[in-house]
Simulated scan of single mutants.
Amino acid sequence: MSNAPVGLSPRLRKFVGTVLMLVLVLVWALGAMALAQGRVTQLPGYLQFVAYVVLGFGWVFPAGLLIRWMLKHDRRQETL
């Protein structure tokens, strides 16, 4: 029996992760633009600032989780 990890190969995981990252950024950008054009403009100034910060940086956490998944089990042993 082999002790090889079961699941996607690192190469395939990085490809799938890259595609998902592009989808995440596109969907987030379009959603953020839709919210910014509609509801955010009706808020007071200080709440607009908070909304724009959340809309601008909100994609970073899901992207970080996706990057962590992409690098999972990709620890190659270094050769001397």
Rank of each mutant, 00 (worst) to 15 (best):
1 M>L: 15
1 M>W: 13
3 N>Y: 14
4 A>W: 12
5 P>R: 01
6 V>F: 10
7 G>S: 04
8 L>C: 03
9 S>L: 05
11 R>W: 14
11 R>H: 08
12 L>W: 14
12 L>F: 07
13 R>E: 01
14 K>I: 09
16 V>K: 04
18 T>L: 10
18 T>G: 14
20 L>F: 04
21 M>E: 12
21 M>W: 07
22 L>T: 03
23 V>P: 09
23 V>A: 04
23 V>Q: 02
24 L>F: 05
24 L>I: 09
24 L>C: 04
24 L>Q: 03
25 V>A: 08
28 W>I: 01
28 W>A: 05
30 L>R: 14
30 L>W: 11
30 L>Y: 08
31 G>P: 04
32 A>M: 04
33 M>V: 13
34 A>L: 15
34 A>K: 10
34 A>V: 09
36 A>V: 07
36 A>L: 09
37 Q>H: 13
38 G>N: 05
38 G>T: 03
39 R>Q: 15
40 V>F: 03
40 V>S: 02
40 V>N: 07
41 T>W: 14
42 Q>D: 12
43 L>C: 07
43 L>R: 07
45 G>H: 11
45 G>S: 05
45 G>E: 11
45 G>R: 10
46 Y>V: 13
46 Y>T: 13
46 Y>N: 11
47 L>P: 00
47 L>S: 02
48 Q>F: 00
48 Q>E: 01
49 F>R: 14
51 A>Q: 03
52 Y>V: 07
53 V>T: 06
53 V>Y: 06
54 V>T: 06
55 L>K: 02
55 L>F: 04
56 G>A: 01
57 F>E: 12
57 F>G: 13
57 F>M: 07
57 F>L: 12
60 V>L: 06
61 F>Q: 11
62 P>L: 08
62 P>A: 03
62 P>I: 01
63 A>Y: 02
64 G>L: 10
64 G>H: 01
65 L>R: 07
65 L>P: 01
65 L>K: 08
67 I>N: 09
68 R>P: 05
69 W>Y: 06
69 W>I: 00
69 W>M: 06
70 M>Y: 02
71 L>K: 12
72 K>E: 13
72 K>G: 06
73 H>I: 09
74 D>A: 06
75 R>G: 14
75 R>N: 15
76 R>S: 15
78 E>I: 07
79 T>Y: 11
80 L>R: 10
80 L>C: 10
80 L>A: 13
80 L>E: 14
